[in-house]
Nucleic acid binder design. Sequence first.
DNA 1: TTCCATGTTCCGCA
DNA 2: TTGCGGAACATGGA
Length: 267
Amino acid sequence: MPELPDVQVHAEYIESTALHRPVAAVDVREPGLVKNATGPDVEARLEGRSLEGTRRRGKYLFVELDDGGWLLLHFGMTGLVRTYEDASGEPEHTRLVLRFEDGGHLAYAALRKLGEIRILEDVEAFVRSKGLGPDPLKPDFGLDDFRELLDGRRGTVKGALMDQELIAGIGNEYSDEILFHAGLHPRAKVSDLDEEGVEDLYRTLRGVLETAVRARVDPEAFPSSYMLPHRHGDGECPGCGRELERMRVVGRTAYFCRRCQRRGRPG
DNA sequence: TTCCATGTTCCGCA
DNA sequence: TTGCGGAACATGGA
């Protein structure tokens, strides 16, 4: 489930399992996921290199190579990364495999082929090309920055939270979670928020994302007050026990509690 | 069988 | 110009 917290967990996973291991061979199973228009093959570019670190901007993960280049991974709706030792440990739907000289492997797997793999020489140029907004988990993303982003914004809060060019990293599930904790109706408008409402939304947003990362995005590890583990057909509101409702908002299905999320409810 | 799903991108509309 | 709705992409589960 790749929104910002999921991608952050993937980044930390790579940091703790796959760094400093020279790559012996690369297997691109799904060439359609490689979006480089020009330049050397992914195979040629990665063989002999090792992974040295990671960066993240919203839902995009950048893995630094030992020669200064970068492997970009985007996870679409279903992507993940896994390391394993022998071939029997390979995940289902593997689309890219790096085999290390020590015999181990790193796989990028995705059930649906909606992700993106790319070799980059310049991360900033890529971020500019996508027009990505700031990453809300960065320590320097402050309340004033958030206030400025929302200033003059029309439309729904949910739409603003999910607009990657405004803020990078929040998708459908976490926008629902944030609205839930802020007590905001899924159709609440940015213009419904007063100064205090914006501040509350900022603190809620940071808190939800940080909490999800701390829980390693494991639903069972989320605090009991979180909606995400109940975000399905007949799930109940963790606050009041009422059955959660669904509503189409900005093109996505929003889950919400009619009783606990009344602020900004359209007339 | 049909609909739906955490992603992005494109189009048309108001 | 901006935000939204809908379609498209791909594949499987309910």
